[in-house]
C-alpha cells in the first residue's frame, strides 16, 4: 500500500509543480509569440510578487485582500516594464531585446535589494506563510500537503480561465491574431499597443499567483529568487513548443512530471516494500539508481531538453515547420 500512497503523493506533487511552471511559461510564451521577445525579467516579476505578498502579510492584511493587492501591484510593474523598457525598442534586433530583458531583471533585483536594505531587512527573509496554506489535506488514508492541492487547483482555474479568454473572447482572438501576424493585425484595426499591454498584464497576473505559491513552497524569499523559475519556465515553454500558449501549459506539466520522476526514481530501491520485486532486482535498483543521484536532477532535466531540441526542435505541440505550411 505504501507504494500506491507514494505514487499518488508524487503525482499530486508533480501536478502542482507543473502548474506553477505552466503559469510562468504561459506569460513568457504570450509575450514571445507577439513580440519575439524572451522576457527573462518575467522571473523577477514573480520575485516582486513574493515581496509584495510578504509585505502585505507582515502588515496582517486579510489573505483575500492581500492576494488582490499582490496581483494588482505585479500587473502594474509588468505594465511599466513594457511601457518604459520594451515599447521603445520594439522592432529592434533580437539581441537588443534580449539584453534589455536581462537589464530589466537586474534593475528589478537591485531595486528590491535597495528596498529591503532601506526597510532594514536582511537579504533573505522568511516568508510569512498564511495558515490556510499550511498542513495537509487528507483523502481517506492518503494525506497530501495542502499547498500542493491549492497550487494545483489555483493553477488549473487560472489556466482554464486563460484558455476561455484566448479562444472565446474578442481580445483573446486579437491576441492570437497579433501573435500570428502583427502587421495584418494592425490592418484589422487592432490596437497592438493595447494587445501587447494586455499580454504583459495577463502574464504578470499569472506570475503573481505563481510567485505567491512559490514563496510559500520555498519558505523564504530573496531578490534573486526569480532566476531558477524563469529558467524552468523557459525550458517548459521550449519543451511544449515556444510561443504557443497550449505548448507552454503542456511543457510546464511535462517538466513538473520529469522533475518529480527524476527526484523520486533515485532511491526507489530503498523504499520498495519487501517481496514486491526479487532481491536481485532490488539490489540492481539500489546500485544503479542510488538516492545520491537526486542531486543531479537538473543535469538530467537539461539533458532531456537537449535531446528534445535535437529530435523535436519545435517542441511537443510545435508544428514541424511553420514556413512550409504557408
Amino acid at each position: 500500500m505504501t507504494l500506491v500512497y507514494y505514487a499518488i503523493q508524487q503525482t499530486v506533487n508533480a501536478l502542482s509543480i507543473g502548474s506553477l511552471y505552466a503559469l510562468m511559461a504561459v506569460g513568457l510564451a504570450m509575450v514571445f509569440s507577439i513580440l519575439r521577445l524572451i522576457n527573462f525579467a518575467h522571473g523577477d516579476l514573480m520575485m516582486v510578487a513574493a515581496y509584495l505578498a510578504a509585505f502585505a502579510l507582515f502588515a496582517n492584511l486579510p489573505l483575500g485582500l492581500a492576494v488582490v493587492l499582490i496581483i494588482i501591484g505585479t500587473v502594474i510593474v509588468g505594465l511599466l516594464m513594457e511601457r518604459i523598457a520594451y515599447r521603445p525598442i520594439r522592432g529592434a534586433p533580437d539581441v537588443a531585446t534580449l539584453l534589455t530583458s536581462l537589464a530589466v531583471g537586474q534593475i528589478l533585483q537591485n531595486g528590491m535589494l535597495l528596498t529591503t536594505r532601506f526597510l532594514g531587512q536582511p537579504i533573505q527573509i522568511a516568508f510569512p506563510t498564511p495558515d490556510v496554506l499550511n498542513g495537509v489535506v487528507a483523502f481517506g488514508s492518503i494525506t497530501v500537503p495542502r499547498l500542493n492541492v491549492v497550487s494545483l487547483v489555483i493553477g488549473l482555474i487560472a489556466l482554464v480561465s486563460l484558455s476561455f479568454f484566448v479562444t472565446r473572447t474578442v481580445p483573446g482572438l486579437s491576441m492570437r491574431a497579433a501573435a500570428e501576424d502583427l502587421t495584418a493585425a494592425q490592418l484589422m484595426g487592432i490596437n497592438i499597443n493595447r494587445v501587447i499591454a494586455l499580454a504583459f498584464a495577463i502574464g504578470s497576473g499569472l506570475a503573481a499567483i505563481a510567485g505567491l505559491l512559490f514563496a510559500v513552497q520555498a519558505g523564504q524569499i530573496n531578490p534573486y529568487m526569480g532566476f531558477t523559475p524563469v529558467l524552468k519556465a523557459f525550458i517548459a515553454a521550449v519543451i511544449g513548443g515556444f510561443g504557443s500558449i497550449a505548448g507552454a501549459v503542456v511543457g510546464g506539466f511535462v517538466l513538473g512530471a520529469l522533475e518529480v520522476i527524476l527526484t523520486a526514481l533515485p532511491g526507489i530501491g530503498d523504499i520498495l516494500p519487501p517481496g514486491m520485486v526479487s532481491p536481485s532486482t532490488q539490489a540492481l535498483l539500489q546500485q544503479w539508481l542510488p538516492s545520491s543521484l537526486t542531486g543531479y536532477r537538473d543535469a538530467f532535466v537539461f539533458a532531456a531538453l537537449i535531446l528534445m531540441l535535437l529530435f523535436r526542435p519545435n517542441g511537443i505541440l510545435g508544428q514541424p515547420n511553420r514556413e512550409e505550411m504557408r
Binding site: 492570437r176 491574431a177 500570428e180 495584418a184 490592418l187
Partner: peptide
C-alpha cells in the same frame, strides 16, 4: 494587403470576425 496575410492558424470564421474587430 499584398500576399493576402490571412491568419492561417485561425478559422475562416475567426478571420472574418477579426475584420470587424
Amino acid at each position: 494587403p499584398e500576399g493576402r496575410r490571412i491568419f492561417g492558424g485561425l478559422t475562416v470564421r475567426e478571420n472574418l470576425r477579426l475584420g470587424a474587430v
